[in-house]
Design a protein around this nucleic acid. Sequence first.
DNA 1: TCGGGCGCGTTCGTTTTCGCAACCCACTTG
DNA 2: CAAGTGGGTTGCGAAAACGAACGCGCCCGA
Lengths: 163, 163
Amino acid sequence: MGRTADYSDQSCSIAATLEVIGDPWTLLVIRDAFKGISRFEQWQERLGVARNVLASRLKTLVAHGVLEARQYSARPPRNEYVLTQKGKDLADVLVTMHAWGSKHLYGDMEAGVVFKHIPCGQQLKPRVACDCCGEIVKRSDIEMIVLQDRPTVGEILSRDEAA
Amino acid sequence: MGRTADYSDQSCSIAATLEVIGDPWTLLVIRDAFKGISRFEQWQERLGVARNVLASRLKTLVAHGVLEARQYSARPPRNEYVLTQKGKDLADVLVTMHAWGSKHLYGDMEAGVVFKHIPCGQQLKPRVACDCCGEIVKRSDIEMIVLQDRPTVGEILSRDEAA
DNA sequence: TCGGGCGCGTTCGTTTTCGCAACCCACTTG
DNA sequence: CAAGTGGGTTGCGAAAACGAACGCGCCCGA
């Protein structure tokens, strides 16, 4: 393609998030990171993704601070990649996406990967709750508000490219 | 390739979900659908996406039952596209992605789009709760389990292409 | 009645990026 | 010292995305 597709003239944290994790394969890389995968070769084998693409994805995830490259061998230089706090916070996104696919695509059948909620021992069916009042959020309780003159995705993301 | 990238040999509802909403622009189309956008021209203008790409995205979203095409003029045939139940259920995904971007990219600054939780009147900070026991889910409470011999993404999605 | 404009796409030629396979480099092991 | 391994980089088509132009049916004003 080209996927020159950048959303950088918008001002929306959904669009910004997509700039970071919206590339093909990226979210699956992160999913496997949650499973404990941390080395190039493991991702490559499990996903079957092209090596150059994988290298590029890991690089941008590190640049955005989702993964941290940790050198475990000095010479030859060998990295492993582990989730940062920022990366671990993507769990919510994975969980809700999993729930949607599970319900609407797999028809509540169990797919090859499931989440378990350890405290209650059941398979996790996530519901979104409001942190402020603690209530479960129904869809009709949500209003989307559009504000004017907020910083664009481009402005936001150019900062951590400076690093 | 051009993104022949298909995850169809995997068995994972996250991968399956990505097959449906993982294309560039698709999630932003859905975001705008939540804002009330329902016509081709409106999406095109707001997103600046190429018209053929937009047409293709709308078509596959309809094919997957996320949007419903509703003809509002017989001649010339004119469609509008509205979210189905399946589509509306993606709200959770949008909300969690929004929260992540808001926290980690915008640094809790307000971006151009925010969600409001109507019952309590506050800006929505979503937390994931377990439907079974009602508790807020902490990251350490989640275990990812890999099962064997489950239907692949390809098998699952080929069904509603038959429609 | 003629022209222009709108709404909704489709077509066409051009870029980008992906997938694949091959290659490379620095060790390690036999 | 040859073969192997982990972690990438390089080069070549092919498939998608891009953008601009075109089509088409209708409506409106002159």
